[in-house]
């Protein structure tokens, strides 16, 4: 059972400000049905002072998602939009007396919905229907929870994250099938944070053709194929030309809509992690 603070419980049983403001001045949404978390916040704003007079929310999600929404509405009522814009996900979590690490993504969702509402008030973004993904224009990294690279980069910067597990706790990315872990590691590297050192295999820059072939084969057998088999798929190594690894997806993976992700993130990610950082993967259609 999650170790929720008393504050989280009071904001869940029952939450404050549930509902929808009739003809609101601003609407903000975050999350989606697929993610298992979604929040819609509506605001009443005093035009002259830009003071938030009222806020209401609707949330699909677990206890801490509902509590985060509830505390958020409490926090913003009475503030000006400029003041509200400074609220971070850490503020939301702190006001709740802390959240379990695995639930930090709930506070991130609160912050995102608030930002969307403020942007909406300023006419910057039209509210989008819940259920859409990749709406920030970023590239979709986690297909299970619909998380983009932009969202991940931001969570890394603002919360000083350094491992894939932490990114999962804050954004949910990588929490289900795990096939985007390679991609998340790339983003972590790109954002320039320290991550756990790579296994020795990846440190070797000069591999002979023979060594590379052997390592590719081992990595596919050990790291990739077991993951694919979990979903009823598999792959076959067709050829290796220099640093281009040609594979054929089999079983459920062949013709899967997300085969592109599988190749790029799982296969490519693992090979870049364990073999060489510049390996390229190509799909040979059967």
């Amino acid at each position: 059972m999650w170790d929720y603070s008393d504050k989280v419980k009071t904001h869940f049983l029952p939450p404050h400000d549930v509902g929808e403001i009739a003809s609101p001045d601003a609407i903000g949404e975050a999350g989606s049905l697929v993610c298992g978390d979604a929040l819609r916040i509506t605001l009443k704003v005093e035009p002259d002072t830009e003071k938030i007079l009222d806020a209401k929310f609707q949330t699909f999600g677990c206890g801490s998602a509902i509590a985060s929404s509830s505390i958020l509405t409490d926090m913003v009522i009475g503030k000006t939009l400029a003041e509200a814009a400074r609220i971070t996900n850490q503020d939301i979590a702190e006001n709740l007396g802390g959240l379990p690490q695995e639930k930090m993504h709930c506070s991130v969702m609160g912050m995102e919905a608030l930002e969307a509402a403020i942007a909406n008030y300023r006419g910057q973004v039209q509210p989008s229907a819940p259920g859409t993904i990749g709406e920030d224009g970023g590239e979709l990294v986690c297909k299970c929870f619909g998380v983009t690279d932009r969202k991940i980069e931001r969570a890394i910067r603002e919360n000083n994250l350094s491992t894939v597990d932490e990114v999962t706790n804050y954004t949910k990315a990588g929490g289900a099938c795990g096939s985007c872990h390679g991609k998340i590691e790339e983003i972590l590297r790109r954002v320039g944070k320290e991550i756990s050192p790579l296994p020795a295999g990846a440190e070797k820059t000069k591999l002979t053709n023979l060594q590379r072939m052997k390592l590719v084969q081992e990595t596919l057998d050990r790291e990739v194929r077991p993951e694919l088999r979990k979903d009823g798929g598999d792959l076959e190594l067709v050829d290796i030309e220099g640093k281009v690894v040609k594979v054929r997806l089999l079983g459920m993976c062949a013709g899967c809509q997300v085969a592109g992700f599988t190749l790029k993130d799982l296969v490519g990610g693992k090979l870049r992690e364990f073999v060489e950082p510049d390996i390229v993967v190509e799909d040979i259609k059967s």
Binding site: Q58, T59, F60
Partner: peptide, 9 residues
Amino acid sequence: RDMSPFWNQ
């Protein structure tokens, strides 16, 4: 469900 944006939708 009353609290859920999807149910309301």
